[in-house]
Design a protein around this nucleic acid. Structure first.
Lengths: 256, 256
DNA sequence: TTTTATTTGTCCGTATGTATT
DNA sequence: AAATACATACGGACAAATAAA
């Protein structure tokens, strides 16, 4: 026995999929849907909340509920970091065959700060807790203006001092900027290890990512090692789950 | 301005974290909580739903709401498939230093079927759509009896025919069973590529995984290549998001 | 086995707040 | 200023699942 609001969500989802409610268009208002389905407004509201947490619609006060465009999942993961993507010649932001999954249709704002390392950062960056770290925070907005990811990258102050890692930037999203800088200062990335898991956002993340209550996010923790297998970068990422897909290729042979 | 039911969820979460509500114990019933917080029962129910979708509590009719034990996230990903885990000597299920993240505290039921390949399977397995595939479906239950993952692995019928890939099994979870069989029949796994993304479950998955409405799941699609870089296995996985963490290590150097 | 009590799940009707048009 | 439309909360009702008698 499946709840009515779930049935209604299924029906509305089907209508979106078949084009009856076009992308970018508004759904009928909740009161009308309630009348059509012959249920209470609260029941319709619950159904819409489900669709909103799936990332398919967005409801906003006094504006109604609009169908979000069905964009293909952005692909991130090991292939994203293939050297061809970030070694010279530098990728052109304007497009071309170098065209990455994050192109000029998303913009990035990077701010720089300095803060002492907490227990985890210290351990992962091989420094002492309390040591100063340079933190580069990047907020990436999709073409539609919504924040889709927030990434913080940490570097030992001794490493970042006096380098371009201290410079704030904004413009088209460029996932490889820091890799290029690290290479320029003689710390060319060699290996990455990445952990990720999906969960629901906490109070602070709701506002920062602009997700609704109950909409899943993916958290990543990544470490970048230079050739000498010393960690040079530690980063945390928070992603709107409905917009990303992670791809990894790895070796399982005995020789690997 | 944060909604009252979110505030209450935060408060209850804090109480769980500080041990006021112990793991495995029952929370006060909704009516009592409503009285204590001086809100309506519905408001408390909404708060509990949030905690349930986070995987922290489980509410069941007439039984109340119990605090789920905070178990460390199961680690899966590239390290999971390191050859030492699945090549001989075979891992012992009883424990020991070979102890994997999925141990004898989880059990697996594997059923085998034959079905024609759909468009995607065919493309990923390098066969013709409509060709018979052998499908091994594994349902893994955690120690607490809940289903935590459902994995379907597909093989070309020509490959699986007459091999142990056709045998149904049950017992302690063994992630490497198929790798061992593939090795035995001369198709030793060499490379894996894996895609994953988090989303909300659909109607069918609700029942199969035993998750509640709005609780995030992670879907994976994996391909295993033998040494000759021919795909030998295609698999799809569905995981309870709150119980797993994916770890990957990969090379980004120019030589890689 | 049958009945009764308990507790959550769902839905209703209503009211009010809030941001936008 | 006024109308609009979603967000939240309330109180009530009943159903469903389980436990207790």
């Amino acid at each position: 026995m499946v709840a009515r609001y779930v049935q209604i969500a299924d029906e509305l989802r089907a209508r979106i999929d078949c084009g009856e409610y076009a992308e970018q268009s508004s759904l009928p208002k909740q009161a009308d849907l309630a009348r059509d389905f012959d249920v209470n407004v609260n029941t319709v509201a619950a159904a819409l909340k489900l669709l909103e947490r799936e990332g398919r619609v967005q409801s906003r006060r006094s504006r109604g509920t609009v169908v979000l465009p069905k964009i293909p999942l952005q692909k991130v993961g090991s292939a994203t970091y293939h050297p061809s993507k970030w070694t010279s010649p530098r990728p052109r932001t304007g497009g071309g065959e170098a065209g990455p999954s994050v192109g000029s249709d998303s913009s990035e704002l990077t701010t720089v700060g300095v803060a002492p390392a907490d227990e985890e950062m210290a351990e992962r960056l091989n420094v002492v807790p309390g040591d100063d770290l340079v933190c580069r925070t990047s907020v990436v907005r999709d073409a539609d203006g919504t924040v889709s990811q927030i990434v913080r990258k940490y570097y030992a102050y001794a490493v970042a001092k006096g380098t371009l890692l201290m410079s704030e930037e904004s413009g088209p999203a460029n996932r490889w900027r820091e890799f290029q800088i690290l290479t320029d200062i003689g710390l060319e990335p060699a290996t990455v290890d990445e952990r990720l898991h999906a969960r629901l956002p906490d109070a602070g993340e709701l506002g920062a990512l602009g997700v609704s209550v109950g909409e899943p996010v993916v958290e990543t923790r990544r470490r970048v090692y230079a050739a000498s297998s010393t960690p040079v970068e530690y980063s945390t990422g928070l992603y709107r789950a409905s917009r990303f897909q992670w791809n990894y290729t790895f070796d399982v042979s005995v020789g690997g």
